[in-house]
Amino acid sequence: MTKSRIYLSIALLPLLSVPWFFGPSSSAVVLGFPIWALYSLAITLLFSLLLCWILQRYWSLLAEDESDVE
């Protein structure tokens, strides 16, 4: 994964956690949560796993400076 893709994924998931795609009729309840709230929570959970994975695998890449490469 490149730095740009890492940065993009970090920005994308919080953006997707907003329930943009749920209209006024989406009021089903699952596990005590409205479906749109559960969707947001699921994306947030996914976000936590992604961040943990990036921290584990790509810290060194993110710490690299272009001047190190040259």
Binding site: I10, P34, I43, L51, A63
Partner: peptide
């Protein structure tokens, strides 16, 4: 109500923002 579930995401997003600068700043 459930609208404030956004707080879970923004507290997590803080770590995402750290990733944009902390690795280099630490070095």
């Amino acid at each position: 109500g459930f609208l404030f579930l956004m707080s879970v995401t923004f507290m997590m997003a803080v770590i995402g923002v750290y990733l944009l600068y902390a690795p280099k700043l630490r070095r």
